[in-house]
Amino acid sequence: MRSLKVKMLASIVLNLIITGAEVLGGILSGSLSLLSDSLHNLSDALSLLASYFAIKIGERRANEKYTFGYKRAEILVAFMNSTVLIGVSLFLLVEAYGRFKSPQSIDTAIMLPVASLGLIANLLSVFLLHEHAHGLNVRSAYLHLLSDTLSSVAVVIGGLLIRLYGVSWVDPLVTVLISIYILREAYEVLRQSVDVLMEASPELDLRAIKAELESIPGVKNAHHFHAWRIGEEEVHFECHLSVEDMSLSEAQRIIDEAEKRLRKFGITHVTVQLEVNRCEPGLLCSGRGQA
């Protein structure tokens, strides 16, 4: 984790430097695609900074107020990052439309060196975070960097085409292609983060879980299922099990066995409520969210 934090801080510094260079280069050269790349780099730096603090907050222990801990701080940041990306992309699409209607001359002597420098910095940032890009929080920041790297490639290619053939419409075209790509990637992160925040049920085979629980000796019926995520990797599950009247030690055996069997479905925390004479064998009980 310490290695990740150091790499994130290094990437933040890189992106802030490139943001300043591309803003200046975009203004001097008149390149919209270079300015769009600078906005992406700025959002990269902000998203990395937010992700860094989310990781720090997420390391705090649970307390009386936040009994589940602070893991959802990372999901909140993923939600904010993806939302900002979508907003920036829509803004750039509008700006690109204006450039198509009123093309502007571009000084490629300034645009190309600055764009190349941005590409190198983005490639380095992507390399630093690649091995850590599996969680929603870091992944959302990584997608910022990856999308900006691709946009830098497009800006460099666009600059070469403009310099060689004088086709100024390539600049807004590159901006449109970059924006569409980012919209697609950001939507997926946004969708997943909203699912977690809204406590949508994880992708679990509830029928298979029901069959597994009802195969435990002593269990007559499994029902009243609820599943949700606290963070990206922490899945909570609760259910009711209808059993025969039995001793407390025997009841504990059933609870322990249920928890053991549910782990193979990726469930990390289980709450089991045992019931006697509330459900007929093989039937479902009434109630919200059952299987």
Rank of each mutant, 00 (worst) to 15 (best):
R2H: 15
S3Q: 13
A10D: 09
I12F: 11
V13L: 09
V23D: 05
L24Q: 01
G26M: 14
I27E: 12
L28S: 03
S31A: 12
L32C: 06
H40P: 01
S43Y: 08
A45Y: 06
L46G: 11
A50E: 02
Y52D: 09
F53I: 13
G58A: 15
E59I: 12
R61C: 04
R61S: 14
N63E: 08
F68I: 13
G69F: 10
R72H: 12
A73L: 05
A73Q: 00
I75N: 02
I75A: 01
A78R: 06
V84I: 14
I86V: 13
I86G: 02
F91H: 09
F91Y: 09
L92N: 11
A96V: 07
A96I: 04
F100W: 04
F100V: 08
S102N: 12
Q104M: 04
I106Q: 08
T108H: 04
I110D: 02
L112G: 10
V114L: 12
L117K: 05
L119F: 15
N122V: 02
S125C: 14
H132R: 03
G135I: 00
L136Q: 10
L136K: 05
S140E: 03
S140F: 00
Y142A: 01
L146R: 14
T149G: 13
L150Q: 02
V155W: 01
G158N: 07
L161W: 07
R163F: 07
S168C: 10
L173P: 04
V174K: 00
T175P: 02
L177F: 13
L177K: 02
I178Q: 13
S179H: 07
S179E: 03
Y181S: 14
Y181N: 15
R184A: 15
R184T: 12
E185C: 01
A186E: 01
Y187P: 00
V194P: 02
V196I: 15
M198S: 10
D205K: 03
A208S: 12
I209R: 09
K210Y: 05
L213Y: 05
V219Y: 03
K220V: 00
K220R: 15
A222L: 01
F225V: 10
F225W: 06
A227Y: 14
F237K: 07
L241G: 03
D245M: 12
L248C: 11
D256G: 02
E257P: 01
E257K: 13
A258C: 07
E259Y: 06
E259K: 14
R263N: 05
F265E: 11
T268P: 02
V276Y: 00
N277G: 06
N277Y: 15
C285K: 11
G287C: 12
G289E: 10
